[in-house]
């Protein structure tokens, strides 16, 4: 029965080895779950702090006054922690690999003076927003990763990291 015992010991040892298997260090993911559109002194948030599933996202309506021009900036945050962690600087640091695309539908909004990346190409994290006549509609903001900024339509290239759509009311 000696060999039988050896077999058992072998088996148990490996079971132990399984359970003792190293857990690798997993840094807690920082995750963008809040996108804020700041226009002048106003701030509008698109937030889904519990992740994709669970509660529905909270989406502010962007309310702007007709015939005004203001500076805007887009801010990315991880709102699942308190206080919320600003992740915008990480994207700004990799501006060459990112592009913000603004697509208003129905709302009279015009974007200009988009901020540039390290190569002098559009980046768009900040810029100017001109508000036209009274209107209602929506504004879609896409954060593109690794777009081909030389393409005729860079918005069709790269992968879409974040895509949020705000309702817009211009009065």
């Amino acid at each position: 029965m000696k060999s039988l015992n050896i077999a058992f010991i072998l088996f148990l040892t490996t079971i132990f080895a399984f359970s003792a298997c190293q857990k690798e260090d997993v840094t807690e993911e920082e995750n963008i779950n809040v996108v804020k559109m700041k226009v002048g002194s106003l701030s509008f948030a698109w937030s889904d702090t519990d992740g994709d599933g669970g509660a529905a996202p909270k989406i502010d309506t962007i309310r702007l006054t007709t015939s005004t021009t203001s500076d805007f900036s887009v801010v990315f945050e991880d709102g699942s922690v308190s206080p919320a962690k600003d992740l915008t600087t990480e994207i700004v640091a990799e501006s060459n690999d990112h592009l913000l695309v603004f697509t208003p539908t129905g709302a009279n909004l015009t974007f200009s003076s988009l901020s540039k990346d390290g190569n002098g190409k559009d980046f768009g994290q900040t810029g100017k927003i001109a508000v036209g006549a009274a209107s209602t509609g929506s504004l879609q903001i896409i954060l593109l990763h690794q777009p081909n900024k030389s393409a005729t339509d860079p918005s069709k290239t790269g992968t879409q990291d974040r895509v949020v759509t705000f309702p817009v009311v211009v009065k």
């Binding site: 399984f18 997993v26 990799e94 990763h145 990291d161």
Partner: peptide
């Protein structure tokens, strides 16, 4: 006894940062 260990690495992290080495795993 069996032990299955699966690790999946995304191209980049969800916040858009490039993450090209294999030191952080997305799904395990």
């Amino acid at each position: 006894g069996q032990y299955n260990h699966r690790k999946e690495y995304d191209f980049h992290r969800p916040n858009g940062r490039k993450y090209l080495t294999f030191d952080t795993v997305q799904i395990a």
